[in-house]
Design a protein around this nucleic acid. Sequence first.
DNA 1: TAGGCCATCTGGTCCT
DNA 2: AGGACCAGATGGCCTA
Length: 247
Amino acid sequence: MADPVNSGIGLNDALTSDEETCDYVDIIGDYTSETESQGTRTTTVSSSSYISSPMTIKTSYTTNGLSLEEIRELRAKVNSRERKRMHDLNVALDSLREVMPYARGPSVRKLSKISTLTLARNYIQMLTKSLEEMKQLLDDIYRSSAANRIPGTALPPYRSFPGSVPHIGHSVAGAGYTLPPLGNPRVVMENCSSVCSHMNCSCYMPNSGSFRNPREYEITPLFGNRASVTSSSIPTIMYGDPSRHIK
DNA sequence: TAGGCCATCTGGTCCT
DNA sequence: AGGACCAGATGGCCTA
């Protein structure tokens, strides 16, 4: 008899045209009950999380090579794999949400799947743009500093950033300046606000205990405020402590 | 109550 | 052949 998986005949299609009543429970609790009728069979499937909404499907089983029990076991196995696959996808989406800058809390709905992906795309775009602008700004700062230095003196000392990643670093005017790593932009400067006046960002005074240098700021992207989220919009950004918001 | 979001089942297709 | 991936269908839950 034909293979219900590869013959083009659906498992449930392959189950029709007979009359039979049966129940079964798969490995996570799928439950099937069937009612008999002439020529077709209606199968009601529900699972442990689906019991309140039984799904009714038409089944037929004339031309398959598997017993009813084998088909059910196969179907349960496939369903289980699919559930696991979707679960893994949701885990991955949750891990993505964890690194996204948006409001969190018991009273805040988590981002939908579409919103999560949309925000991730926008966030990457924003970081890329900010990085380019920061490179340009530091380049300008260095050029200005080099132009004003007294002939014969050394260039300003290079201040490395915690966690800088050399291979993505940016050499400013050949002086070996390296930008902070993506995703954790910290910058040392006298006036962070002056930087953010050129960029779509905001400056937060870091916790005194967690930063060695009192002039070290976190530059935070600005997305604006929103109370709700749609797939085409950017959600609220609450990143850092607003009470320390200095711009 | 309509619409958005989601979980689940299912069958088809592609890949190893 | 078996598993991964995908899209369609279905029904529940929640919110405006």
